[in-house]
């Protein structure tokens, strides 16, 4: 297998590349991103590219890439602008799929990491979304619109290229020690926001399951769309109780205006898609992916508990310092210098 990973500079990308390197059936791993990898990688080749991947078609052809792992989609609208969301999620995916679908392309598998944000959160929603259901309200935020547009490109790609296995994984809200999401930011606050009178259900995925599911989809043939989420749902009040944080109510009316001062003072940014989640919550049906044989490591309650443990440790020892920094000349030295004694056959 010759794998190309997009978003090597993101947490997922680096973790996945590390995992792929360990496997015997993976010949080469090429990582693409605008930023440097976060974790030390042994033989993954890092290529710095612009966010719209204009260079991709050349890499695919030159390196005979047969599997593309597209992890570089942004879901956190608090840490990127609307422009960047559009550029990365829509234009990036479009260029990626154009390169993968070009005439004579060696690509045989595409795995995309998407989000359950595409379902939205609305009072008309079913208790849990199945993969074939569509959202009940029109998307109003840039992140949701960009993900839906990216999904339509992927659908077209799968239709035009029946010889390519296309897998799309929709991850529910992710929590974990090593990753910042809108929810982990909110739960790290001394007090956690809620909307007065609402206590919706949430379903979480542990970061290990994100990695596990992506790896599973890369190494097995599981075409189609799948929801990825831990078993069970928890009401928001219980999530906060497990993490051990008191809640402060936001007004149920004009909530978006009420959080504006918090945004402006940089206390916390609660984007509109998070506010509608705090009001109505979201559950997804995770049974389809289980039927493919994947076993989850964490349930929703287990995910929240693991996050709470990490948080307690963090309170004692403070922020973990990143132990690794990518330096291009050092990496080149270790990989290509004749001075290095290589023991592998």
């Amino acid at each position: 297998m010759r794998v190309l990973v997009t978003g090597l500079g993101t947490f997922w990308g680096s973790r996945l590349a590390q995992q792929l390197e360990q496997r015997d059936d993976v010949e080469i791993v090429v990582g693409l991103d605008t930023t440097e990898p976060r974790l030390p990688l042994e033989h993954t080749e890092f290529v710095r590219a612009d966010s719209s991947y204009s260079i991709l078609a050349r890499i695919v052809k030159a390196a005979k890439i047969d599997t593309i792992l597209h992890t570089h989609l942004l879901f956190d609208s608090t840490s990127s602008t609307g422009r960047a969301l559009h550029e990365i999620n829509v234009i990036g995916t479009m260029n990626l799929l154009a390169a993968a679908g070009a005439a004579g392309s060696p690509v045989r598998k595409v795995v995309v990491k998407s989000s359950t944000l595409v379902y939205g959160a609305n009072y008309k929603d079913p208790n849990s979304f199945r993969e074939e259901m569509s959202r009940t309200s029109s998307p109003r935020t840039e992140v949701e619109r960009s993900l839906i547009e990216a999904a339509s490109f992927l659908r077209d790609f799968a239709e035009d290229n029946p010889h390519v296995t296309v897998t799309k994984l929709r991850f529910s809200n992710v929590l974990g020690d090593d990753i910042d999401t809108v929810f982990s930011k909110a739960l790290r606050m001394p007090v956690v926001p809620e909307i007065f009178g609402f206590d919706p259900r949430f379903q979480f995925t542990h970061e290990d399951d994100v990695e596990g599911a992506l790896l599973f989809a890369t190494t097995n043939d599981v075409p189609g769309v799948y929801n990825i989420a831990g078993d069970g749902t928890l009401p928001w009040s219980e999530v906060c109780a497990i993490v051990g944080k008191p809640r402060v109510p936001l007004p149920p009316l004009l909530t978006n205006w009420a959080v504006e001062p918090l945004r402006m003072t940089r206390v916390i940014d609660l984007p509109p898609e998070m506010l509608s989640l705090l009001r109505y919550g979201r559950g997804v049906d995770n049974r389809r992916f289980k039927r493919t044989g994947y076993r989850y490591n964490y349930t929703t309650a287990g995910t929240v508990d693991a996050f709470a443990r990490g948080l307690r440790l963090e309170h004692v020892i403070g922020d973990k310092q990143p132990s690794y920094r990518y330096q291009s000349d050092v990496e080149t030295f270790f990989r290509h210098s004749p001075a290095i004694v290589r023991t592998d056959p």
């Binding site: 208790n127 849990s128 259900r201 009040s237 219980e238 349930t299 287990g302 929240v304």
Partner: peptide
């Protein structure tokens, strides 16, 4: 046998999947 405690031990409430 996983090192994860059972869900029942982690729960603080008894709200089911339907609320």
């Amino acid at each position: 046998v996983s090192n994860q405690p059972a869900d029942a031990d982690l729960r603080r409430g008894d709200v089911d999947a339907w609320g």
